[in-house]
Design a protein around this nucleic acid. Structure first.
Lengths: 123, 123
DNA sequence: CCACAATATCGACAGATGTCAATGTTGACT
DNA sequence: AGTCAACATTGACATCTGTCGATATTGTGG
């Protein structure tokens, strides 16, 4: 689904998180090489302090969305660096981008973080 | 607790996973800089295909433990590289090591993966 | 059309990371 | 003691990554 107002960017790369939703916890049976690479790609996207803060700030914002100008100051990095991190999170499927006027609003992709959490859980 | 048979190695670095167990999901409120660095450190330890496979193989092994010689062949990397990855996972608090004779048995630290999963979950 | 504001992209650079071969350590067994 | 097996550590190397300044792109408003 994931229909948003405004112009929805079409990511050139496939949303990685989606390919990975329906996996059993990694503690149930060994992952093969391909599954490991896919999951590692998602975790790599999350494994950065700035990106984690970006995700949490977006999640805690009004309407679960925020524009770049709202994110630069609290994280304390330059605007190009923030844009870079947002792109990484988008390509991994954790964020979506909708453009309204000059502003680009980033929002959490529902279920993306949860699918990673599900794979990690031991139960 | 975490009492194991055999000689239990005492990691020189504090088990990072433990410091991080009691955090609310990152989507509830923004993480501060320190929390972000801590969580990123854990995710970095997980964000590698070889290490994910190591974790899953250990978890699926008899008694949730395996020695290095059992891990080298299925992962397809050299023994020093396997030892390196196991060390990373140990220092992050995901694996523990108990030595019996010449063999070093690695085992999942109960709850370590789950605590990361809990932080990631959206609910 | 022209300036300006918000983002994105590019190029460069320092530092981190994954990998292996070589070597060191430790314990078992004769 | 001596040898061998399992594992850890070291050193080196290529690659990846995070960061910024500079520049390009796109949309707004005069």
């Amino acid at each position: 689904m994931l229909t948003y107002a405004g112009h929805m960017s079409t990511p050139t790369l496939l949303p990685l998180a989606e390919t990975e939703v329906c996996r059993a916890p990694l503690t149930r049976q060994p992952l093969d090489a391909e599954q490991a690479v896919d999951l590692a790609r998602l975790l790599k996207a999350l494994a950065d302090p700035a990106r984690l803060r970006l995700l949490s700030i977006v999640a805690a914002s009004e309407g679960q969305q925020a524009c770049v100008c709202d994110l630069t100051e609290p994280v304390g990095l330059s605007q190009p660096t923030i844009s870079h991190h947002l792109k990484v999170l988008m390509e991994a499927g954790f964020l979506s981008r909708s453009k309204r006027g000059t502003w680009a609003y980033y929002a959490l992709v529902p279920g993306a973080l949860d699918s990673v959490a599900t794979v990690l859980v031991t139960a």
